[in-house]
Amino acid sequence: MKEQALKNRKSDEKLFDTVVNIIAALLVIVVLYPLIFIVSASFSDPAAVLNGEVVLLPKHFTLAAYENVFQNKQIWNGYGNSIVYTLVGTAINLIMTTLAAYPLSRPDLPGRGGIMFLITLTMFFSGGLIPTYLLVKSLGMVNTMWALIIPGAIATYNLIVMRTYFQSSIPWEIQEAALIDGCSNWKLLTHIILPLSKPILAVMVLFYAVGHWNSFFNALIYIRNKDMYPLQLVLREVLMVSQDDAVVSNVGLENKVLLAESIKYAVIIISSLPVLVLYPFVQKHFVKGVMIGSLKG
C-alpha cells in the first residue's frame, strides 16, 4: 500500500514538472515571437510583409530598409540628440540624487525625518501636468534641452533606493570613525562612500539612462524645433504620424508606401538597439536595483 502511494506521488511529481515546463516554454514563445517577427520583417521584402508572407523567418532577404534608414537625416539627427540628452541628463540625475540621498542617509542629520516626509509626499501627490508645464514655460526652458532634463532631475523612487543602499550597505561605524579622525563630510562622500557604492551607482546610471533614452512625452510638449527632436519623437513621426500621409500619397506611389512600411520595422530595431545590446551585460544590475528598492519601499 505504502509503496503504491509513494509511486503515485512520484508520477504526480513528474506530471507536475512536465506541465510547469510546458507552460514556461509557451510563455517564452509568446514573449519572443513578436520580437522575432519585427526583426524578420525588417530584413524582408516589404511587399512580402504586406501580403502576410513573413511568418517567422525573413522572406526575400534585403537590407533596403536599413539603407533607407541610414540615409534618413532626421533619424540620425534624433539619434545624436538622444545621445546628448541621455549623457547630460544622466550626469545631472546622478549628481542630484547622490547629493540628496547621502545626507538623508545619515542618522545624525537633524531634521532628516521631516525632509524625507516632504520628499516622499511628492510621490503620492503632485501639482500635475498643467501647473508643471506652466512653470517650465515661465522659466524659459521651452525649446531647450533643459526642459527635458531639469524638471526630472531627481526621481524620488531612485532617491529612496539609493538612500536605502547607503544606510544598509555602508556601516555607520566606518563613517563615524572617519569623522572622528577629522574627515570632512565632503571628503567622506567622495573618498569613502562613493567608491564603496559602485553597484548602486551602476544601477542608477542604468535606470536614469534608459529612462532618458526611451522618453518622448516631455519632448512632445516642450520641444517645438524639429532639429532638436530626440529619437523617440522621430520614431513616433515615422511610425504614427506618417500613416495618414502614406494613405494620401498612395495613388501611383505604391513603391513609396511599401518603403515607408518597411522602414517602420527597421526603425524600431535601430532605436531599441543600444538598450537591447547592452541588456545582457547590465541585466544583473537592473535586477539588483529592483531588489534594493524592494528592501524598503
Binding site: V28, L35, N214, L235, L239, M240, Q283, F286
Partner: peptide, 20 residues
C-alpha cells in the same frame, strides 16, 4: 532573462509594434 526583455522597449516602439 527572456521575459525581462520587452520591459526595455520604449513606449513609442511598443505602440509601433502593436500597429504593425
Amino acid at each position: 532573462n527572456i521575459t525581462y526583455i520587452p520591459h526595455f522597449i520604449s513606449v513609442v516602439a511598443m505602440v509601433g509594434m502593436l500597429l504593425l
